[in-house]
Design a protein around this nucleic acid. Sequence first.
DNA 1: TTGTAAGCGTTATCAC
DNA 2: GTGATAACGCTTACAA
Lengths: 340, 340
Amino acid sequence: MPVPPGKQPTQQEIATDLGISVAAVSLALSGKPGVSDQVRATVLEKATALGYRRNASAVALRTRRSNVLGLLIRNLRNPFFLDLIDGFDEACAKAGYEVMVGSSRYDQEREQKLLDTFADRGLDGLAVAPIGRGRAVGAWAAATERPVVVLNAPRRRAGRLAMSVSPDGPAAVQLAVEHLRGLGHQRIAMVAAPAEKSPDPERLELFLDLAAEERFTASVIEAELDLNTTREAVCRALGDAPGRRPTAFITNSDYLAHAVYLAAADHGLRIPEDVSVVGHDDLPTSAILNPPLTTLRVDRHRLGAEAAGLLIDAVEGREPPSLELTIPVSLEVRGSTASA
Amino acid sequence: MPVPPGKQPTQQEIATDLGISVAAVSLALSGKPGVSDQVRATVLEKATALGYRRNASAVALRTRRSNVLGLLIRNLRNPFFLDLIDGFDEACAKAGYEVMVGSSRYDQEREQKLLDTFADRGLDGLAVAPIGRGRAVGAWAAATERPVVVLNAPRRRAGRLAMSVSPDGPAAVQLAVEHLRGLGHQRIAMVAAPAEKSPDPERLELFLDLAAEERFTASVIEAELDLNTTREAVCRALGDAPGRRPTAFITNSDYLAHAVYLAAADHGLRIPEDVSVVGHDDLPTSAILNPPLTTLRVDRHRLGAEAAGLLIDAVEGREPPSLELTIPVSLEVRGSTASA
DNA sequence: TTGTAAGCGTTATCAC
DNA sequence: GTGATAACGCTTACAA
């Protein structure tokens, strides 16, 4: 271990040790032209011998680049975000960036506060799964003039700096509805966040449009998107008379589909005999639930990785391949859906 | 929005605007004594008027404190870590710290590299779920002289700077074995990481000790701790003749218990009729698996929060309540275990 | 190619 | 209480 216990060596130290200037050392260490191979070699050697490590704060202060990307999630308890974080982290690691995460916990104020601290820290870019339509995001982009990618929601602001990557929402709704209609369901409910907190009201709109077109009865279960509140809301819906309550539920995540399982159990109703459920995400556990969950599969890892990719391209001045990336979804039919 | 689009205002700007010194501004803004209430008030007012935001890099450079804590996970795909991250993040947020995460992906080299960059960034403390017995952790503590808490593994190094928080491992093993023995199982297998990658060989040792004491046949399924490798390893074990293969499996996570479910299905074996499984963690999904998983419940959120708490205490010079925190576990008996 | 020096924005140590 | 002023460690003109 070359690292001495005490304080860290600086470029200054290397320079005086070698009898050269700090400028030379800086150039040599950062691999930039301007020094002889001779000097470069000795500097590099000395640096490793001394266990030199570049002070990231100093670099950030001087260059206004932190080599850190932010990831702001609204609900860290939804396993959906795990693979997303993993993909994001992996892509960042490959490109030499660090990741700073935060969870807004569905709290607007907290979201804004996190955005601010992220900006203070000089993060080079931000990926955010916003609460609602993401007003905060605009503020960030404007204030920092740094790239931002919105996750799971269409991008709001125009410009090169605002991007988005999301699963194909319209396809998801359509596939779910088609599937349930094919099974003969007439009363279908969609679980959705209250309008002001929903990142993509488009899904709900499309759902209602389809109901009008295809003449089935659509209902909306409005709930904060955590397990307990949703469970209660679904419970209330299932409390209706058998001839009136929904026979099928569509959720925007497998995570919330769990709430339907729990609510059904609360009422002594069986899935899929009494209620059908379609999820979204295809979590690793969804195939081994009781019953296995019919859901829309989406590559979460890729979603995170693409988000990081877009940011890194933008940060490094490359033209991102597209400002709006859509990740395909596919229907995975399992045991949680049956004929009405 | 007070923030002007262009560049950020600095303390210097506030100072000249007000015709006072930067020192006064600094003191006023950081709430330290040394300025009159008069001056303090005007500074604060001016600051908000200008939309002043403190530059975190500059502070970090000057004070050698970043107000960031690191969280280094070995496998971000295990949902266990989600709630842990959430708890960690929440505790940090409350105390005004940011969180930087990284995943080592079970790669020693990557772990070391992340540790290094974390150190370079001047993180104030580190929580790490290490690969193996955590050699890297010692290097970090020694090099940075900053606190570290090991997650899910006993702490290795002595000293005020090395701490640990983990579920009660011995209790977990004992409860699982007792339960299975009570059901009459004679051949029990434990799924464990290869010795050099295992953070807590103690569990395995205790398991083997119990086998010797209680005279049951113990086998060890050694596998890298990802879903596929584990599934294959369990598959091989289940390939033995019915009279020889294990009738019950103990895993150190519900995540890996899923692999047993999948492997059993591969062999056309039923849980719990043909094989019993005991998990560990009690993930939100575990109760609604098919069949519901018998498991050891542990408060993951608290685990993360306690880890952050210990670090923050240490960073801020308070004496942590204990250097080694054990989180209790309790057996949750469900449908995945039955008599042999 | 090399060295000198001026910052980046903040905190801390002095004098006054 | 207040104001100069010197760091913190690094990058980057610019001069030699």
